[in-house]
Write a protein that binds this DNA or RNA. Sequence first.
RNA 1: GGGCCCGUAGCCUAGUCAGGAUAGGGCGACAGCCUUCUAAGCUGUAGGUCGGGGGUUCGAAUCCCCUCGGGCUCACCA
Length: 552
Amino acid sequence: MDFKKEAVKVLKKALPREKDFAIEIPKDAKLGDIAFPCFTLAEKEKRNPSVIAKEVVKKIKLKGTIFTGVTSFGPYINFFLDKDRASQEIIKELNKKELIKKSKPERVMVEFFQPNTHKGIHIGHTRNVIIGESISRILEEKGIRVVRTTYGGDIGPHVAKCLWGYMNLNLKPEGDKGEWLGRVYAIANEKINTEQKKKEVNSVNNRLYAGDKSLVTVWKLTRNWSINHMNKVLKLVNTKMNSFLWESQVEKSGLKIAKQLLKKGVLKESEGAIIADLTKHGLEVVVIVAKDGTPLYLAKDLGLAELEFKKHKVSKVIHVVAVEQLLYFKQLFKIFELAGWKWAENSVHRVYELVGLKEGRMSSRTGNLILFTELYEKMFNLALTEVQKRNPKLKLKKQEELSHQIAMSAMKYGMLSRDLNRKILFDYKDWLSFEGNTGPYIQYSYVRAKKILKKLGKARAQMIKIENDYEYGLVNQLNKFPAVYASAYKKLNPPVIARYAYELATAFSKFYEHCPVIKSEYSGSRAKIIKTYLIVMGKVIHLLGLKPMNMM
RNA sequence: GGGCCCGUAGCCUAGUCAGGAUAGGGCGACAGCCUUCUAAGCUGUAGGUCGGGGGUUCGAAUCCCCUCGGGCUCACCA
């Protein structure tokens, strides 16, 4: 419910000559519910805004409106809502079936989680997949059909290095073989320190590109280990990809498109390579096919775009990719545009900043990284000891299930609550905390709400009666959901939802502490508020990529 | 050097796009609250040159200019 409109109506009657009313929400609820600052009026009339505010207040008539009071405080005119009536309307609105109005049906691809095979999956990938999943759910809430897509790098120099290490260094597989390959890659990198060895790696790369049978067999075997590991990670974060695309799938078609664009004059040759000169667009020069004929990343992306738009029949592709590739995507989209393809306007690069360590940048090459499973296991174990403390009689399987959800809540909320433009400097201390502004806190508030209703049993349906600020504080937070969602959708920005989740959970925790429900004469009204809280918070938790928990 | 991003208490962070009322939170510290819906909670206290300097404005963390610090990026990696 938007009560600003009501305030504007009232103000128009008092100030018939005014057209635009810049309504605000007071920072402090004690000041009022809706505010109208008189600064612009003061400027027009060249008079003191505080005096104007006082005069206008005298002219305002509230009879028959949703407001119970209006006062001036300095240059501000502050309106006070009839809390019972306002809450009644808010709760009614939020209990409607279609909380978010659906848009026209559309198929959109969200391309996220672009890991390389033969390398480890670290917490940088984790930020990506968590953002991608949340954006997908935000779109789905609007009724959009989302095609979740992974684009994996399964060929290229890094694969050659890893395979060289695998075949020459006589290392023994241990644990998850896909994860182990990441270590092989890091060790190989260290060992490839002579010209002779570099030649050998190059030869592996060329033979693989040429389709050498015995090498392809090894490649397929190890590639599968990596893919199994990726699937394990995706399962843990509860993301179900609709399609897996690979560089090896698009390099040939990409090369073909690059050559066509060369003929058309969109691209040109330089020093034996195929390049795009985008300097006059302020986008530098970019190499598309290397002078030895190998299609580079951009060539592959041309093939990928064709596959994504044509085969998957999507109207739009959203690439969730870190900031390092900001210029790169501008170049890619510019080439779409120069080629005269509509892909240009239907492609979006959703940028986010990297996850780094205090010691410096994470790198699969040097092994300076935190693996996804490393962090997950630490979180899981910590959650498990807590769960066992609180629910000692619960079966181990159930305890583990809860611990998994708690760990994922902490991880996802941690990844989503920070602004996407802000780099995350990873520190275990921050991530192994489940108190305060964290995912488990949000889940906990949901669990408590659920428990109250369970214990209460059936409550009589009743009108909302607001007895104190904590009740209205919660209702007021609930009322913000549609606007919060709209902002997150418009900007493809999950952090907006995450921050709201915390504010909403806080409002509930205060309500919980100060408003008994079960043994209260207001139990009917309060139960209705809690029910609405569960609807909204349930949706919010889902949008963050999580499942609302029923016990902790 | 050019382009983009970040700089808010000891640490982490919201607010910056659409300028307004004493700059919100969290962690950590200190002091309280569990025979009463799970204390992963609640209530207080202490802690701030909003990197710095100019400007615009009745009013600037927010807009403009300059400047300092950090990160990413700028032709054959992805």
